[in-house]
Simulated scan of single mutants.
Amino acid sequence: MSERVQVMRGWEWARPVRPVRREVLSVTPQLEEGRPPLLFVPGFGHGAWAYAENWLGHTAARGFSAHAVSLRGHGGSDPAPEATLRAYAHDVVQVAAGLPSRAVLVGHGAGALVVAHALARYPARAAVLVAPVLGGWATFGAALRRNPFGTLPAVFGGGLRLSRRQLFSRELPDADARRHTARLGRAARRAQWQLLTGADPEPAVGSPPVLVLGSPDDRVVPASALTRAARRYGSAPLLFPGMGHDLMLDARWREPIDAILDWLVKNPGRGG
């Protein structure tokens, strides 16, 4: 007889996460094919709009139900100036649990770290980490070297600042880049600090397959960080040269989302 093991986190019920109204944008396919839903999680400063621009509609056109959540304090969700990574992960778990079947979690940038934390609490069908910023002192050091003027304010409670050159390739028209950067907000200061200095996430529930992808030309996440992230999950990163950090908004946005969906379709038990 197998023994069921339940992990008790006393501090989670003793100090529950404050409920908020969360923005969720969804696009569903015209024909339901029995495929798992995808829940897209944006990085810090981004909202669900970052996926609604291109990836949600494209995902639905390929037969997957597509949903994007704005973490508390982002997009159209309720303000949350004191939010933590735990609160962000709670948002993801709550939205995923409300979907009709087990979802594939897709996190971008710091949203990939949020997904990694959520995986310890939600039995995802699979996970995809896009240009992942997985936190810790190595991330802090890399951020200081690559973007000192944008990183230092976050250490003292200010917002992380990223430039057009860091987020997008030169292929993206300037008008589009300005439009996207104008919509960027900021994460809560506690969550930013935890991103830079926090501990690794707990192991994922059920050991779901995890795909890591990004660009070797990303000016936020170095290629070495993509390799480390993929090794953590027993794989190698899928790379898209010539793209910026915001793969879902860049000029060649179709390439990474098609690769994600192809991975889900072609691997038995992952998306078919």
Rank of each mutant, 00 (worst) to 15 (best):
W11Y: 10
P123N: 01
L99I: 11
P37L: 13
R161M: 03
W263S: 05
F240E: 03
W49T: 14
R228W: 09
R15Q: 10
P29N: 07
G63R: 02
L119F: 10
V220N: 02
F149D: 04
R72K: 01
A131E: 10
G45R: 09
M248A: 14
G135Q: 13
P201Q: 10
A204V: 08
P100K: 10
H58V: 00
R170E: 14
R164S: 14
L39E: 04
T84C: 02
Y88P: 05
L99V: 09
S65M: 03
H117F: 11
R190W: 05
G43W: 04
W137P: 08
R121T: 07
E202H: 11
P81C: 09
R219Y: 02
V92I: 13
S70C: 02
V95A: 06
F168Q: 04
M8G: 02
P203H: 11
R186D: 04
H67W: 05
G75Q: 00
I260P: 00
Q6R: 13
L134R: 15
M243V: 13
R179Q: 08
Q194G: 06
V114A: 10
V155H: 00
L113D: 02
Q194V: 11
F168K: 05
G10N: 07
S26M: 12
V7Y: 07
R72Y: 01
G198D: 14
L113Y: 06
G63V: 03
S2I: 12
L152M: 13
A83I: 07
A259I: 10
N267K: 12
V7H: 11
L56P: 02
P81T: 09
D200L: 14
F44T: 01
R18Y: 04
R178K: 08
P37D: 12
L195T: 13
Q194C: 08
P203W: 13
A48E: 04
A187V: 09
T227W: 05
A87T: 06
G214R: 03
E171P: 00
G272C: 03
L172G: 01
E171W: 00
Q94D: 08
S224V: 14
V115N: 04
V95K: 12
P36L: 05
A177M: 11
A187T: 12
P241W: 12
W55P: 05
G185K: 07
L249H: 04
Y233E: 04
A204R: 06
L99N: 06
F44L: 04
R231T: 13
R164H: 13
Q194R: 12
V95M: 10
F156D: 03
L85A: 00
M248R: 05
L144R: 06
L85S: 02
M1N: 06
V205N: 01
S235R: 15
G141A: 10
R62W: 01
P29L: 12
R165A: 15
V210T: 09
A251F: 15
I257Q: 12
G214S: 02
P256E: 13
A50P: 00
V115I: 06
H108I: 12
L195Y: 03
